[in-house]
């Protein structure tokens, strides 16, 4: 890739993003070692990682977009497709399953009209399953955005989701 070309690609990233990525690069012996951090930084700013962002990050890390995409698509918390304003991570691992997470999922689906993997039409939520959240004593649990919600029941779910949708 020519220098000009790569500068062009990189310009898709904001100064803030680039600074954050460069701060990570300072900790590691190889530039491309921060691939995952960089994807997360960009995702934190934009909600997801578009093809354009991916190519920009790759150019900035001196790696190919192909290789970076291999990394991005490996990890379930890097979103390569747009997600809603908040991602609901519903734990469906064993302890939550014992405590009825399947029913909760159904309830969420009824309430928001989305199945696992889908985003609400108002773009508020994307519903995803997640591995055991390490809060099994408070099962069933889910995360909405960065917040953990414990001891869920059908009522609390509606409250939480309804609650966070009111501006």
């Amino acid at each position: 890739m020519s220098e000009a070309n790569s500068m062009n690609l990189i310009s898709a990233l904001s100064q803030e993003e680039l600074q954050a990525i460069d701060a990570e690069i300072a900790h590691v012996p190889y530039r491309d070692a921060v691939a995952i951090d960089a994807l997360k930084i960009v995702q934190a700013h934009r909600g997801w990682v578009s093809d354009e962002s991916l190519s920009a990050i790759a150019a900035h890390l001196h790696m190919s977009a192909d290789e970076l995409d291999g990394i991005a698509t490996f990890y379930n918390l890097i979103y390569r497709r747009p997600v809603g304003d908040k991602v609901i991570l519903l734990c469906n691992s064993i302890s939550c399953w014992i405590k009825g997470c399947d029913n909760l999922q159904q309830r969420i689906t009824e309430e928001l009209g989305v199945e696992l993997g889908e985003t609400t039409s108002d773009n508020r939520y994307t519903l995803l399953p997640v591995t055991c959240l390490g809060a099994c004593d408070k099962a069933p649990v889910m995360m909405v955005g960065d917040e953990l919600h414990e001891d869920l029941c059908e009522e609390s779910i509606i409250r939480i989701l309804g609650g966070s949708t009111t501006p």
Binding site: H27, V28, L77
Partner: peptide, 29 residues
Amino acid sequence: LEMHVHSSAGRYICGEETALISSLEGKRA
């Protein structure tokens, strides 16, 4: 000694110590 916190990007296999190392290197775990 310098110490850093690396926040992962998901996937249970990252807990396996050698997969963790791959992931910390910025690769597929």
